[in-house]
Design a protein around this nucleic acid. Structure first.
Length: 192
DNA sequence: CCCTGATTCGC
DNA sequence: GCGAATCAGG
C-alpha cells in the first residue's frame, strides 16, 4: 500500500520545500509519511528545508551536537556555553507592576486571610506573591507575599489556582487526537 | 512544554 | 533507500 517516493510525490515535496513549507506540513500534505521521513528524504535529495529562525548551518549543528567538525583541516573545538557562574541578582524591581486578574476572585474565598508572609506594598519584592489580601472596602494594604511559582511570575501557587479556577481546554489532548486520527488514515490508506 | 530541522543507523 | 529514534536549538 505504500506509495513510496514516486516521481510525483518527490515533485510535490520539492515544490513545497521551495515554498518554505515545514517538514511537518509536507508530511501532512503528502500523507503516508512522517516528518522525519520527509526530512530524511530531503537530506538524501540534497534539499535544504527552510530554516525557521536562528540556527542554520551544519557547523552550528555539529558544534551543538558536541562533535568536532573539520574545517580547513582543523578541528573546530566545540564552544562552551555560559557556564557555572551562578546568578545572584535577586530582586531589584523597585516598582511592582500589579497585573489585575481578568477574572474576579471568587467572592466566597475572598479576601484571603493574611499569612505570616504578608507584606505591605513597600516591602513587596520580586518573588513575592502580589495577590492583594483585601477584598473590597476593608483595604488592609497587605499582599500575600508567599514565594511565586517561578521567577518573573506574580502569584504563588495557591493564589494562582484561586485566580484561574477555570481551565481553558486541553489543547494537548486535542492535538494528540488529531495526530492519532491522521496516523490511522495513513495506515489505512483511507482519506476522507 | 511545544515546535523546528539534522544526523545516525538498523532495516 | 528508507525512516524512526535521537539530538539540539528556539
Amino acid at each position: 500500500m505504500s506509495e513510496g517516493w514516486t516521481e510525483e510525490r518527490v515533485a510535490r515535496l520539492k515544490a513545497m520545500v521551495a515554498d518554505k513549507a515545514t517538514a511537518q506540513e509536507i508530511a501532512d500534505a503528502l500523507g503516508g509519511v512522517t516528518r522525519p521521513a520527509v526530512i530524511g528524504k530531503c537530506h538524501r535529495l540534497g534539499l535544504q528545508l527552510a530554516t525557521p529562525q536562528g540556527h542554520s548551518n551544519a557547523a552550528s549543528i555539529a558544534r551543538n551536537r558536541g562533535r568536532t567538525l573539520i574545517e580547513d583541516g582543523r578541528a573546530v573545538i566545540p564552544v562552551r556555553r555560559t557556564p557555572p557562574v551562578a546568578k545572584p541578582a535577586p530582586a531589584p524591581m523597585p516598582e511592582p507592576v500589579i497585573v489585575e486578574p481578568e477574572i474576579e476572585p471568587t467572592p466566597k474565598l475572598w479576601p484571603k486571610p493574611a499569612g505570616p508572609e504578608a507584606v505591605t506594598i513597600d516591602d513587596l519584592r520580586a518573588g513575592h506573591c502580589r495577590m492583594p489580601l483585601w477584598g473590597d472596602e476593608s483595604r488592609s494594604g497587605l499582599f500575600c507575599g508567599k514565594p511565586v511559582r517561578a521567577e518573573g511570575q506574580s502569584w504563588c501557587a495557591a493564589c494562582a489556582k484561586l485566580t484561574y479556577e477555570r481551565r481553558p481546554i486541553r489543547e494537548r489532548e486535542l492535538r494528540e487526537m488529531q495526530q492519532a486520527r491522521m496516523a490511522k488514515q495513513s495506515r489505512t490508506g483511507a482519506f476522507a
